[in-house]
């Protein structure tokens, strides 16, 4: 490459360095706006409060009793299943096992599924 002036190589190199660093910084800025969004979306999509409420109600309902004409336990448990399906788009099912002679605990099997999140628990009384 005879006769080619190579004085400006350093300037060209600096130009490359600056432009590449600007490019990466642009990517970082671009990503940083997405971080808060995806985190908040994940929190909103996870039905934490639905699961808490449903679980709390099932455990409460287990200790209601049907008294005479008032089918308290049956009514409340049917209401939980119906309202969960209609208002929270979730299938809820549960069953319980009463204390036996050798085991003084009450057990409740809780199942929750809303098409995205599934929650299963075997609750045991103290």
């Amino acid at each position: 490459m005879a006769g080619l002036r190579d004085d400006a190589q350093w300037i060209v190199l600096m130009g490359f360095i600056v432009s590449f660093s600007l490019f990466f910084v642009a990517i970082v800025i671009n990503q940083s706006t997405v971080v808060g969004q995806t985190t908040a979306e994940a929190v909103i999509e996870f039905p934490k409060n639905d699961i808490r409420g449903m679980r709390d109600m099932i455990i409460q309902s287990e200790f209601l009793t049907d008294e005479g004409v008032f089918n308290n336990k049956t009514n409340v448990q049917n209401d939980i299943k119906t309202l969960s399906l209609h208002r929270q788009n979730s299938v809820v099912s549960f069953s319980s096992r009463n204390p036996t002679g050798s085991d003084p605990h009450t057990y409740i099997e809780i199942h929750y599924y809303n098409g995205v999140t599934a929650y299963n628990e075997t609750w045991r009384s103290n």
């Binding site: 109600m57 309902s61 008294e67 008032f70 409340v76 209401d79």
Partner: peptide
Amino acid sequence: AGSCSGKHAVLVE
């Protein structure tokens, strides 16, 4: 009617 009462679960939204 008396048999209509008793405990029921409702959802406050």
